[in-house]
Simulated assay, not measured.
Amino acid sequence: MSTLSRTYSTRSAKAAIPSSPISEIMSSPPAPQKRKRPFTDLPTEHNTPTKRPRRMSSSSSLPSSSAPSTLKPKGKPKLPAGTKAKSSAAKKAAPAPKQARLTQLHFALDAPTLRTCPLCDLSYTRGAPDDEALHRAHCARVRRGLEWGREEQREADAARVEELLAGVKLANGARGRVVCFRPDVGGKIGAKLAVLLETIRLALTSPALSPAVLRRSKIYLFLLTAPGPSPAREKIVGCVVAQRIATAMAIARSSEVSAARSKNASASTTSTPASSQTVADALSSQGTIAGEDPSESAPSLALLPVDDSTNLYVHPTPLPTPMGIPRLFVSSEYRRLGIASRLLSVAASTFILGCPLNPARGEVAFTQPTGAGKGVLEAWGKGGVRIYEEEGDA
């Protein structure tokens, strides 16, 4: 039998005592018994026990007062010397934030807060955000007009916008066109018209047009083609509102106004002073005191003042007139280019279908024109334009 080496993992096994004596004559040798592999024959990595991480309890994690502490205090990691120098240089090179410049304010109790813009003649309160925002938007529209873009052009057919004159060349070489539509449109065009009428109301310091007037009116716009590669960009730089009226009053000539003033000056020596009376009141009172019928007096002596600053007077006798112009407006940067005359001519020729009107014969009237409006009606109307009183709500 072979000799086995003893290890700490093997034990000597007692040989089994056979029940019968061993005989040399045996059929076959006994089968070898299976045994475990000796520990020494295993590889080194299997013999080395693995180290498990030591779990420290809350009580053992804190260092005792007697034993020296091996834990390092928490703090910023120590940077290399070159890194610290670079960070300090970067801090020195970074610009310091600029301090806002302060302004010393003073109470100006005697200074007026209401200001009138010299460009758009709109009065607003300085320092009020709402007033200043309104002024900026209004001033831009008065000077440069309103935009007429692709959205308005898409709704032109549905709103029955009619192009009356195309390819109009102005005095400065720019080109545009004249369109017309009813004021009861909706959508984008209706919203644009509302903004335009409000701009005209503020610019002319006039009351808003009543619904009764708008129901009998037509809107004429001059669309100026904006310079640039996009031909769809246009601006509304001119507007005329034309309405159907019944009667109007003829404008008095300068000679008639002078004669009325001289007559009033001579009558004021024996009656009420002229400073407390208008020309029409003085002349009409003369006819009443004398017992005469005012309608039988000379028409040149019974005048009604429309605007004393522009020396505009009218005869009180109403005359049949088919068309009236309650609003006329042109953006300030595009005036004196013939836009107002083109709009008025197109309105007079197309307002009544198949019946063009002649302003020289008194078939067109204005309502209380301003100083600039008076110059337009005198140049365009050739002395035949009349004045009518604007109607209110009916």
Rank of each mutant, 00 (worst) to 15 (best):
D184H: 12
G338A: 03
D121Q: 04
G354A: 00
L146N: 09
L202W: 07
V376P: 09
V185Y: 08
G291T: 04
R182T: 08
R150S: 09
G291P: 01
P299A: 05
Q99D: 11
S61G: 13
A365E: 02
I25M: 10
R52Q: 13
I22K: 01
L209T: 07
A365M: 00
P227A: 08
K92P: 00
P21N: 14
T367G: 11
V185E: 10
P299R: 11
P316S: 06
V314I: 15
S262G: 15
T288A: 15
L221Y: 05
L79P: 00
S309M: 04
P32W: 00
A282P: 05
P299H: 10
C120G: 01
L102S: 15
R160L: 10
R52T: 09
S20K: 11
S87Q: 14
S254F: 14
V257D: 01
L377S: 08
L224E: 05
Y313N: 06
S332Y: 03
G167R: 02
A67H: 06
G228Y: 02
P369L: 02
A232I: 08
E363Q: 13
M323V: 07
T367S: 07
S300N: 05
L353G: 00
N311T: 14
A267G: 06
S271N: 07
Q104K: 14
K78S: 05
E363A: 05
P63I: 05
M249Q: 14
T310M: 08
M1K: 11
T321P: 14
Q368D: 03
A267P: 03
P129T: 10
P229L: 13
V330L: 05
P97N: 05
T367I: 08
A31G: 08
A94H: 04
R215W: 11
S230R: 13
T70Y: 04
L214G: 11
L319M: 15
L221T: 03
I189F: 12
T113K: 11
K34L: 00
W148M: 01
S217K: 00
G384A: 01
F39E: 08
K51C: 13
I251A: 08
V306Q: 03
A267D: 09
S206V: 12
E45T: 13
K86L: 14
A133R: 04
V142N: 07
C117L: 01
H106E: 13
A348K: 00
M26V: 15
L170M: 11
G383Y: 05
P183I: 01
A96N: 09
L109E: 12
K169M: 01
S206P: 04
A252L: 07
Y334R: 10
A280Y: 12
T70V: 10
L214M: 15
T317C: 04
I352Q: 00
K84Q: 11
S20W: 11
S262V: 12
P211N: 08
K14N: 15
V179G: 02
R52Y: 11
M26R: 13
L114T: 12
T3D: 04
S349P: 04
V195P: 08
S60I: 09
R55I: 10
C117M: 03
D131N: 15
E389D: 09
K36T: 00
L165W: 03
P129C: 07
H106Y: 12
Y388R: 05
